[in-house]
Nucleic acid binder design. Structure first.
Lengths: 229, 229
DNA sequence: TTCACAATTTTGTTGCAACAAAAATGGGGC
DNA sequence: GCCCCATTTTTGTTGCAACAAAATTGTGAA
């Protein structure tokens, strides 16, 4: 009694709702830093940006606001959130719990091919850092992390983690120069790859948690310096 | 007629968008078991149920689908999800990580008044169980947990946890008779209240994790029995 | 000049109609 | 009787216009 959606199942991604496309596009723009913290978003402006009508644009904004990627700054204004110290801490603790869990599970399913893919991504990160293309390094860094998390086999967990990245993403673009100083997360990533290779769940979790904590410290310091300066 | 914007500033939650109201109402219905697993939802039906037009109804459905509380069962059908073993496990592990974190943080901020409120809730749970009003017991159980989680001071974490409850909620209503057998979570709740009283973060976390694990086992067993029978 | 207030513009929300696609129905052929 | 295909109905998506509320601008008086 199967409803035979088997053939369309694979193709149905091609037929995407405009609202979904807008949502996805907005997410990418936020993470890529196109919309910076404090940026005010209006329904009609977004609609024009994405070349759709107000309905899908509103859909996307609503969903993003619902998951905290955008916040209300007033009765009629949604903005990309500027994180204060408390919010940053909350997100970091949540990330540690969730990305730690995902990493640990990932170690159970990782294959040598996965490790190779990670190596390629790490190479891209290194090159981007070398050439000071920080936005690109950030993007590949995201891919590195999520390649691991997806190995957990927990799709919904991954999407929750994604929503957390959406919230810190914009803030990261504020501290480009910082990244060069200490190569961003390179050492942690290497340890992570080794752990994955050895199917060492605890080790992988520790490496990823370290990476998160390093990023947190850097971000916190940058914010403090900004508030003082 | 009278605008008086100054006064409305604090009350502005009273002026709620129809879409938000629909979203909130749908959430409560899902958790309360009005919409059971497998229940198919149509935009127009929901609109009629909630007595609004299609736009807010669609808003609510979209947001709920986005956070996994509803799922696509076909090209044009969203339903309340029926959890399989894998999904149940994923949610439980995620809950352990998140609700554990929230509990630990809650222990830092809990006051004697909070403990008293918990006692009142527990009394309500006990009475409801005694009189076999299981839906009500379930509802108070939810309040018990979230009263604790909110003490963490991490609002976004709480809302993520809420979205997880939204996903398991419907399944709980399938095993009412089970609840009577062993009083649902009573012992764990007592330990939790003690731990909170003593500001014992690790102890509170352990009690809540135990509660989650107990529920998981019960749910898993019920599903197995259903699949076999 | 500055402040208050009214008019205008911008903006979010909502309902609705038009369209497309999927499901349900029913009728005709085998 | 059963199955296939055309027709009808149901349903989701989308764009848009009307409305309300907030922000902005402009104007006039002190």
């Amino acid at each position: 009694m199967s409803d035979v959606p088997n053939e369309t199942a694979q193709v149905e991604r091609a037929m995407e709702r405009l609202g979904d496309a807008a949502y996805r596009e907005m997410k990418e723009r936020i993470i890529r830093g196109v919309y910076k913290p404090g940026h005010k978003l209006t329904v009609r402006a977004v609609a024009q940006d994405l070349d759709v009508s107000t309905t899908p644009a509103r859909d996307a904004i609503n969903r993003l606001t619902n998951e905290g990627a955008l916040v209300y700054a007033g009765p009629k204004t949604v903005v990309v959130p500027v994180l204060d110290a408390a919010a940053l801490r909350e997100i970091t603790l949540t990330r540690l719990a969730l990305e730690g869990l995902a990493s640990e599970q990932a170690a159970l399913h990782g294959t040598p091919e996965d490790v190779n893919k990670l190596r390629s991504l790490q190479a891209l990160i290194n090159v981007a850092l070398e050439e000071k293309r920080y936005a690109e390094a950030l993007w590949h860094n995201k891919e590195f992390h999520f390649l691991i998390y997806r190995l957990s086999g927990f799709p919904h967990l991954v999407s929750i983690i994604e929503s957390l990245w959406l919230r810190i993403g914009p803030s990261l673009h504020n501290l480009y120069p910082e990244f060069a100083r200490e190569k961003y997360g390179v050492r942690n990533h290497e340890v992570a790859m080794e752990a994955l290779e050895e199917r060492d769940g605890a080790g992988l979790r520790a490496a990823m948690e370290n990476d998160i904590r390093d990023g947190y410290r850097r971000l916190k310091r940058a914010n403090q310096e900004r508030d003082e300066g």
